[in-house]
Write a protein that binds this DNA or RNA. Sequence first.
DNA 1: ACGAGGTCCTGCGAGC
DNA 2: TGCTCGCAGGACCTCG
Length: 275
Amino acid sequence: MPELPEVETYVRDLRPRVVGRRIVSATLSHSDILSGVTKARLVKRLTGARISDVTRRAKHAVVVLDNSARLVVQPGMTGSLMAIRKPLPPDEARYIVLHARLERGTALVYHDVRRIGTLRLLDEPAWERFSAAIGPEPLGEEWTLEQFVATLGGSRQAIKKLLMDQRKVAGVGNIYANEALFLAGIDPSKPANRLTESQAGRLRREIRRILAEAIAASGTTFRDYRTGTGEPGNFQLELLVYGREGDPCKACGTTLTGTHTLDARITVFCHRCQR
DNA sequence: ACGAGGTCCTGCGAGC
DNA sequence: TGCTCGCAGGACCTCG
């Protein structure tokens, strides 16, 4: 499921393949993934526009167009953004939601099996508002320890839920929240405002480290995720807790606990290592 | 402010 | 074999 490292991987794979190219035609197969834009308007704004950049904000891939519009792609759980040079096989092609044919034989494709993802088309002011509502980028300069400690202190929510709240920290989802909390030795259900200063510091460091390592490994392929060139990621090999409930903790051997009590998402942790 | 629960969507695996 | 059912989940919503 694409979180920050997976979306960053799409963006890095896509940028050299699509930037500078004009969109010759655009086809949308399902309108149910659109938010705040109609199919007709989306197709009209995409057609003829040149792609001036591809960037990332939180878990959103942002295709910047030269007509001052931005195509903002949130892959949800099963969405992927790819640059392809030849048609996908039919059993894959049926899940293409948006197909933008570019100059010189490349296509920018949004593929999504379950269509939990969202496509938006935002002009500059709308983009500014949208981005301003999202929390700081955890790999950016602006995410200081002071800032994080202030965020934690203002909330009694379980720390794991806070980490996944995009208004508080951008781009962390279920997999990396579980992993970072394990690495930092913190119980996922601990109220955010009860973390000590040293726990906050350790958690922040582990979040930054794991996100950077996952980007270096081209993301985590648990089920559906593929990179922008169709390859699986590699970070699933490094996972210490996610997907390992019932297996022994790699640090102490205790059987890892899996629960759904936090926001109905699978939470996996070691009750001995994480306090 | 916070937790609980529903909604969107489809593939997949379990159970019969 | 073929069906029904529950589950997976990121973001967003309502309710208490």
